[in-house]
Structure formats: structure tokens, C-alpha cells
């Protein structure tokens, strides 16, 4: 039963896992980059980003590039630690399952 304790409810969604995967290997990613890589709609992505932001797993940084507003995200230390725990738990579950 202890297996399940490391499974993180916040990550319990394909898109959220995707966002975190991208932020694990990139210093930061902007909204459009996430959108293109994950192939999701604006609204859908925004809601998942918000959930991760609320858990303090990622930070939002708003800035202007020329005149265009640009929103970019980076993973917090907490977010990275939790993501690693989650992945380890997933891998253990898979080993048990097969």
C-alpha cells in the first residue's frame, strides 16, 4: 500500500505531466512552446498551468519581448523534487504490475 503514497495527485493528468517533463529539461519554456509540444488548446493548457502554479511546482514570469507580452514558466525546486518522486513511484508501480 505504501506504493501509492508517492503518487502525486497534482500530476495525475497527462498534460500536467507533460508540462513538468518539459520544464525538467529546459530552464524555462513559454506558453507557445508548451502549446506546440503538447498539442493542446489555450484554455486547456492555461487551466493545467494554473493548477501547477497553485501547488507552487512552477513559477510564472511575465515580460515583454518588444511589444508582445510573453509568459514563460520555470519549474521550482519543489516541483522538480515532487516530479522525481512521482516518476519513481510510477516506475515501481509498473515493475509490480508486470
Amino acid at each position: 500500500m505504501s506504493l501509492i503514497t508517492n503518487i502525486n495527485k497534482v500530476f495525475d493528468h497527462r498534460i500536467r505531466l507533460g508540462i513538468m517533463s518539459i520544464l525538467m529539461v529546459n530552464e524555462y519554456a513559454d506558453f507557445n512552446m508548451l502549446k506546440e509540444l503538447l498539442e493542446v488548446t489555450d484554455g486547456n493548457l492555461a487551466s493545467h498551468v494554473k493548477a501547477l502554479e497553485k501547488a507552487e511546482y512552477l513559477e510564472v514570469e511575465k515580460q515583454f519581448i518588444g511589444r508582445k507580452p510573453n509568459t514563460r514558466y520555470n519549474a521550482t525546486q519543489l516541483g522538480k523534487t515532487e516530479f522525481k518522486k512521482h516518476i519513481n513511484a510510477l516506475e515501481k508501480l509498473i515493475q509490480k504490475g508486470t
Partner: peptide, 14 residues
């Protein structure tokens, strides 16, 4: 499937 998608995204994005 999740794990393989995570690996794929990590590679593709970086």
C-alpha cells in the same frame, strides 16, 4: 505510456 511520453517530450523539447 505516461513514462514513454515523458521521455519523448523531454527529448523533443531539449
Amino acid at each position: 505510456k505516461d513514462i514513454s511520453e515523458i521521455k519523448n517530450l523531454m527529448n523533443k523539447s531539449s
